[in-house]
Design a protein around this nucleic acid. Structure first.
Lengths: 124, 124
DNA sequence: GTTGTATATTACTATTTAGTTATGCAACTA
DNA sequence: TAGTTGCATAACTAAATAGTAATATACAAC
């Protein structure tokens, strides 16, 4: 958005965070419970700072939160933004499906109607 | 992903497409039915090429498809990727909530158990 | 055939993103 | 106190993104 600096909202940030496969993998790992940064680094062929960066993105999206245990900074999942994103998706998907349904029945209606003598531009 | 060129998968592309507020607004508009490009440009203070670009992103994500009507290229919503994204979110959200629930009931259980004189690591 | 309308494409710019290596720092451990 | 562990931060680079203005194309209408 070049000039006119746009303030990204919650949904922007959540979806952007979810758009990266590494970050989704981190979330999946966290489904099984808390993890430290080094534990999260292990499964990936990425540097520790790279993972720390991803964690920052996830944290800013509110998708994870951090604790403190000596020099460790355990990461745990926070599900609320996932819930919000789901609500958005579900809402619009359902509206669409309702419309689709309506279109479907409309087409059905038109088809049966065309079986009776059709006026208009009918090539018949 | 710098070198080692990573092929973005469906979920990457879908979430990335949904991360932009303009694109979400376009999808919302399309919930009310098909629209031409110029119709989609109107509500925004963006140039026509900018909207065309957004449409390309949405199309590549499979979230919209295009028709043809003379020089117009009507855009309509396709809901399947929305469904897939919803499935992902719902899946992980539910796992998380299950864990959360389990932790909750576990804590509850521990609390009530501690009211009877239960010996330490007692399996009863 | 000229003009107008709807959209795509091109060429360019600024910003953001995802990665790297190197370094810093806090807290535990011997 | 010296070394080690766990993580963050800094400085940099390459690539992707979101926008622009200008131009091209394709069809319609006169």
């Amino acid at each position: 958005m070049q000039l006119n600096s746009y303030q990204p909202n919650r949904l922007d940030i959540t979806f952007a965070a979810l758009a990266d496969p590494t970050r989704r993998a981190i979330l999946e790992r966290l489904m099984t419970g808390e993890a430290t940064v080094t534990e999260l680094v292990k499964p990936f062929s990425l540097s520790q700072p790279a993972i720390s960066k991803h964690l920052r993105v996830l944290e800013q999206a509110g998708l994870v939160s951090r604790g403190r245990d000596a020099q460790k900074r355990p990461v745990r999942l926070e599900a609320q933004p996932l819930a919000e994103a789901t609500v958005w998706l579900e809402h619009y998907r359902q509206i669409w499906e309702a419309n689709y349904q309506r279109l479907d029945t409309l087409l059905e209606e038109l088809k049966t109607r065309s079986e009776t003598p059709t006026p208009k531009g009918a090539k018949q």
